[in-house]
């Protein structure tokens, strides 16, 4: 118990001290995970919507596949992306390994299935409700997918937040493809892992408290923004 309360005090100290290195690590965490979430939304939302309204062979297989991929182990994704980006790998010539870009790619792979699967779920409901209406207007299925995505834009923020939560919390993938390089690819979760390795458990936990606070603040912000937007345009 003592250690935990000491960690809370230390977390406050760290934040109050406004150490620039800590700020840089938090910023990089946000940049990488928000970047990955945006990428995953750009890929996963259209895909999820098409899976919902589309009728094509293999659709059910794809739905099961994306549902299953929500449980992708980060370390496996890390390893896969590492082998792709490694100098000896197919994309080696771009020299992306151990860069924040590599971390964004890995987290995108991790998060896109979550966003695709959750989007499909949301659009399924919308589709059931508006199918007749859209049909009577003569909308093609892709057209319908677009309309429904727009209709469901507020509900879809939850999908994006779920994806972001997964990205910011994982350590396995970014550790492998980023290498936890000080000042270059060191993010919150890899710092916590490192401090735990050094046996500095209070500092590790204090950093964890800061990470959770950042995530909560961001979620609260998204929630308020959504409410405001719904009132204004919903």
């Amino acid at each position: 118990m003592n250690e935990i309360s000491a960690s809370l005090a230390l977390a406050l100290d760290l934040v109050a001290g406004g150490e620039s290195r800590l700020a840089a690590i938090v910023l990089l965490s946000l940049k990488v995970s928000l970047g990955a979430t945006l990428m995953a939304c750009a890929l996963g939302m259209p895909l999820g919507a098409l899976l919902s309204v589309g009728r094509f062979p293999g659709r059910r297989v794809l739905i099961v596949l994306f549902n299953g991929l929500m449980g992708l182990p980060p370390v496996v994704v890390g390893l896969l992306v590492y082998l792709l980006l490694s100098r000896a790998g197919p994309l080696g010539q771009f020299g992306l390994l151990f860069t924040p870009t590599a971390m964004v790619i890995a987290q995108t792979v991790l998060v896109a299935p979550i966003i695709a699967a959750l989007t499909r779920q949301v659009i399924d409901d919308e589709w059931r409700e508006h199918r007749e209406q859209l049909r009577s207007l003569g909308a093609s299925r892709p057209r319908a997918a677009r309309t429904l995505l727009w209709n469901a834009r507020f509900a879809l923020t939850t999908a994006a937040l779920a994806g972001f939560g997964r990205a910011i919390a994982e350590v396995g993938a970014v550790m492998i493809v980023g290498g936890n390089i000080d000042g270059v690819t060191r993010v919150m979760t890899t710092t916590i892992a490192l401090e735990t390795s050094k046996g500095d458990l209070p500092l590790a936990l204090a950093l964890g408290v800061i990470l959770i606070t950042v995530v909560l603040t961001l979620n609260a912000g998204a929630y308020l923004l959504r409410q405001w937007a719904e009132r204004r345009w919903g």
């Binding site: 940049k31 945006l38 990428m39 750009a42 259209p46 098409l50 589309g54 924040p100 093609s140």
Partner: peptide, 25 residues
Amino acid sequence: MQVRNILRRGLAAATMIMIGLGASA
């Protein structure tokens, strides 16, 4: 055609984000 359009737009947006992130000194 429209299916491709939707996916292409998604891909284009993703690429823009990547470029934006990669543009560090």
